[in-house]
Design a protein around this nucleic acid. Structure first.
Length: 510
RNA sequence: GCUCCGGUAGUGUAGUCCGGCCAAUCAUAUUGCCCUCUCGAGGCAAUGACCGGGGUUCAAAUCCCCGCCGGAGCACCA
């Protein structure tokens, strides 16, 4: 039984005990679900969720959790997913025009496709209309207090002088905000909540403010009066029929704030779930859009897909499948406490996905040259140990080979050049010592990888720990760009480019 | 200062709502062995956790209280 592949075992089991098999598979399904059931899922005809990124830069690894979890729920419940760009801050978190598409590509990379994509900056008139309505109901007032002055009053639970302004005045002043008659900081629109609410975070929060800096999107560049996240997102969630919101604990109070608006409108608030902060091990670079952007700016990193950058673009370039990232994210579950994502779990997922298809090649990092005396003209290791049918590579020896320095055996000792045969290290050369595999099986001779001294392909391997140079066997030149290969005893890598003076690969993991 | 959350092995997670079948699940990690012409894959095994203290109970990871630790909000950021 041990010699069988999983598929063969499955067949055998199906023949012998179909009931048992069904039971096992049911358990498997069960095990894969680390995500908790969505609250009150039965209360809705369709589960509708949204990923609401701020397109102020390309995504780092942590952002992947949003589409991974939301997309997985969408699949689990056969639901609907919106990607809404919450790009309502043209200044502090200024949108990056390239990020919109980059983010959508990342979502696709992770294995999901939004059913609809919208940009908040296209929807300003909608927010204005709702603001007018809210003002009409007495739910908001324009306020010209300075941030500090208001904060002081608010913390004391005291209303500011503008709080009892009548709706007509408020509406007039709000229209003036919209018409650009105020400069930044001169006037805001506040939601009238409960100025004595025991949680100071909920008291009369700002719904709209004036921003002098034009929005980078041409379509939105004329607007000066911008909604704050809690207003915009609250309105949009209702208007797009969102049933379940999943967001970070940094937005823990958002629902509580937005409920005041929902109450004014008589709307039902969606179900809300939160997750905590995510950190990723194995990187020197902080998981932060601004930090990564700065390092790129300073030239410390080559770009968002630099292998040292903890970004989705980077792991993608390294040949890591989106599904490996998605699965690792889903395995983190929905915990409101901080979590550390171990990259090793992403790697383990990915290894499982690519091992079977990745053909094997030799890459010798730097290394030393040794003349080879005797033996065949070439070594012929298989392209894949589990797939003889894929054929073999041909590695001509040409009189000398290059091996990694630490693989050179002590003088007089033997080593097995994989796919070629056994050699003995004598007087600074490798002397052919036969092709009896018992040397490896019975006598404990180590098997190592090697390349010919002449005709090997120079390779730059970019890794999260910096660049590594080496030489790959001649056949490596035949690989396709984008192909994921395994350099035996080194690790998996994605072929990035084949050039005149060599190839570039991106290292994935061992 | 005010207001919310949360704390199970190195990491993540199941179990907590409805106490017992939990001397605590699974994955990853690490180590060892088997297998293999790779340090990959596969197989086997080992390592390793209920934040602390009280209480309730025949019985507590699970319920209650008090601590401790960690996180978040109180922005004209998202």
């Amino acid at each position: 039984m041990n010699g069988l592949t999983p598929d063969e075992r499955r067949e055998r089991l199906e023949a012998l005990a179909p009931d048992l098999l069904a039971e096992l598979e049911a358990e498997d399904e069960e095990d894969e679900r680390t995500l908790p059931d969505l609250p009150n899922a039965d209360g809705y005809d369709e589960i509708r969720m949204r990923a609401a990124p701020n397109p102020n830069g390309p995504w780092h690894l942590g952002h992947g959790r949003m589409p991974a979890v939301i997309g997985t729920y969408k699949e689990l419940y056969d639901g609907w997913m919106l990607c809404r760009f919450d790009d309502t801050d043209p200044e502090t978190k200024r949108p990056d025009l390239d990020a919109y598409d980059a983010i959508l590509e990342d979502v696709e990379y992770l294995g999901f496709e939004p059913d609809e994509v919208v940009r908040a900056s296209d929807r300003l008139e909608t927010y204005y209309d709702h603001a007018r309505e809210l003002i009409g109901m007495g739910g908001a007032y324009t306020c010209s207090c300075s941030g500090e002055a208001f904060s002081e009053l608010k913390n004391a639970g005291k209303p500011c002088p503008h709080r009892d302004k009548d709706p007509e005045t408020t509406l007039r002043e709000f229209e003036a905000m919209v018409d650009g008659e105020y400069g930044a900081g001169e006037m805001v629109l506040r939601v009238r909540t409960d100025i004595e609410h025991k949680n100071p975070a909920l008291r009369d929060w700002v719904a709209f403010r004036v921003v002098d800096t034009p929005h980078p999107r041409e379509e939105a560049a004329a607007y000066r009066c911008w909604p704050m996240l809690d207003f915009q997102s609250g309105i949009d969630d209702h208007l797009t029929g969102i049933t379940h919101i999943i967001r970070g604990i940094d937005l823990q109070d958002s629902a509580k704030r937005q409920r005041f608006v929902y109450d004014y409108f008589g709307w039902e608030y969606p179900e809300v779930l939160h997750w905590g902060k995510i950190q990723v091990d194995e990187y020197d670079v902080k998981l932060s859009t601004s930090t990564i952007a700065r390092l790129i700016e300073e030239g410390e990193l080559d770009g968002w897909d630099d292998p040292r950058a903890p970004t989705l673009a980077s792991v993608r370039r390294r040949g890591i499948r989106g599904a490996a990232v998605t699965d690792a994210m889903v395995d983190l579950g929905l915990s409101t406490s901080d979590v550390d994502l171990a990259m090793s779990s992403v790697y383990a997922n990915n290894r499982e996905l690519v091992d079977d298809e990745a053909n094997r090649y030799f890459l010798v990092r730097d290394g030393v040259e040794k003349a080879v005396v005797g033996g065949p003209e070439a070594g012929e290791p298989p392209l894949h140990p589990d797939h003889e049918e894929r054929g073999r590579r041909r590695i001509p020896v040409g009189g000398a080979v290059r091996v990694e320095a630490e693989d050179v055996p002590p003088n007089g000792k033997r080593v097995w050049l994989k796919g070629f045969g056994c050699v003995r290290h004598t007087r600074d050369a490798f002397e052919y010592a036969g092709d009896d595999i018992d040397a490896v099986r019975e006598e404990g001779v180590d098997v190592i990888h090697w390349v010919p001294a002449d005709g090997a392909v120079p390779v730059t391997m970019r890794t999260p720990d910096g660049d590594v140079t080496g030489r790959a066997e001649p056949d490596f030149a035949e690989t396709e760009v984008d192909e994921v290969v395994q350099f035996e005893r080194v690790g998996f890598a994605r072929v990035d480019a084949h050039g005149e003076d060599g190839s570039v690969v991106y290292f994935a993991h061992r």
